[in-house]
Design a protein around this nucleic acid. Structure first.
Length: 357
DNA sequence: TTCATTTGACCAGA
DNA sequence: TCTGGTCAAATGAA
């Protein structure tokens, strides 16, 4: 894990440095009358790609660090302290990988990413596989070659808010305590109750234990174990161990960098939506902070706490907010305050950026 | 009564 | 034709 993270750090630095260089190039082109619009566009694309790559990695570390830090410190912003006292973890995330078929709005191809969750005890996974969103099961299917049926879930707000994201939950054949969750699409909804992001709905993920016909009821489904919501979710959250196995993305495509902005789509405009897969990982913090104050993406300190990233975001938060904000501007408008961005980049010493404690 | 889940049927793509 | 994915009526739970 450690080695892996070191590798990620180097990779991250590389992406950020590349972005910086490209930004400088673009800055120069801005004042060259001979420079074509296409050239600038290409540079802009490259810049965005670099930052998207970096953020994809940061996202992972943030997501992992977020959970782990919350567990360890127990005093993070989005979770109540009592949430971290649970000592009976039910499951752990084994592996997460992003498989972005695409994330660019232009490409309009659905985002697909997977994660695997190991359930340590109990047969019923409460919303544990929780990602902060509420889901409604709309189907279950036996899959050829799989011992267990696959469950199909869609966002509860599909109709209310037109959120078309779906996920599939498949119990692993090799390890029945492991579930593979495949997310398709991005949330465009706002969960009605923010608390529900931490204390999800009643819905449960219950997959059949046997490979039989659909309507065969499995025991797990009948043994619904009710727990107080806070216990439920945080029993899952505690002692999470996330191993980032593969950050490689298909086709080298990274998520589009579209943090919420009033200029993005009418739907988002109304709801302060995030048209970005990052939502999945950042949403709780983002919604609780950014939406209440501004349309600027915010990383809470806990995202980088103790997971190895160790990024002192408490002090860097405003910086990150600034650069994200700036980049968002880039995304949404051809008019970019590149001086600001350059200034930021110049002030960041990437060589000594405190990624690790 | 409302909302979520179950499950047979249907559809589209390979 | 087969399979995965989705729909929607029936059913159950709160």
């Amino acid at each position: 894990m450690e080695g892996h993270m070191k590798f990620e750090e180097a990779d991250l630095m590389s992406d950020l440095m590349q972005g910086k260089e490209l930004t400088k190039q673009l800055h120069n082109h801005m004042f060259l009358s001979s420079s074509s619009h296409e050239t600038k566009e290409v540079l802009l694309e490259k810049i965005l790609l670099s930052y998207e790559k970096a953020l994809t990695k940061l996202k992972w570390e943030a997501n992992v660090g977020d959970r782990e830090t919350k567990i360890i410190n127990g005093n993070m912003m989005d979770y109540s302290p009592c949430s971290f006292t649970n000592e009976n973890p039910k499951s752990e995330v084994l592996d997460q990988e992003i498989k972005h078929k695409s994330v660019s709005k232009r490409r309009k191809i659905i985002d697909i990413w997977k994660k695997q969750v190991k359930v340590c005890s109990g047969e019923v996974i409460e919303e544990s596989l929780d990602d902060g969103h509420s889901w409604r099961k709309y189907g279950q299917k036996d899959i050829l070659g799989a011992n267990f049926p696959r469950g199909y879930y869609r966002c509860t707000h599909k109709h209310a808010q037109g959120c078309l994201v779906t996920k599939q939950v498949q119990k692993s054949d090799k390890d029945p305590t492991t579930y593979e969750i495949t997310y398709k699409g991005r949330h465009t909804c706002i969960q009605a109750n923010h608390a529900n992001k931490a204390f999800p709905s009643r819905s449960k993920i219950c997959l059949g234990e046997h490979k039989h016909h659909n309507h065969q009821k499995n025991e797990a489904q009948e043994k619904k174990i009710e727990q107080p919501p806070h216990e439920t979710i945080f029993s899952f959250s505690s002692e999470l161990e996330v191993k980032l196995e593969d950050l490689e993305t298909k086709e080298n495509i990274f998520p589009s960098f579209c943090f919420p902005s009033p200029s993005i789509g009418s739907e988002n405009e109304d709801n302060n939506m995030i048209e970005n897969p990052f939502m999945e990982c950042f949403s709780p913090t983002f919604l609780s902070h950014a939406t209440s104050e501004s349309n600027i993406f915010c990383l809470s300190p806990c995202h980088y706490g103790s997971n190895g990233l160790g990024l002192s975001v408490q002090t860097s938060e405003s910086i990150i907010t600034d650069v994200v904000s700036a980049t968002t501007s880039i995304t949404n408008s051809p008019i970019v305050n590149l001086d600001e961005l350059n200034l930021f980049l110049d002030n960041v010493d990437f060589d000594t950026f405190p990624i690790y404690p």
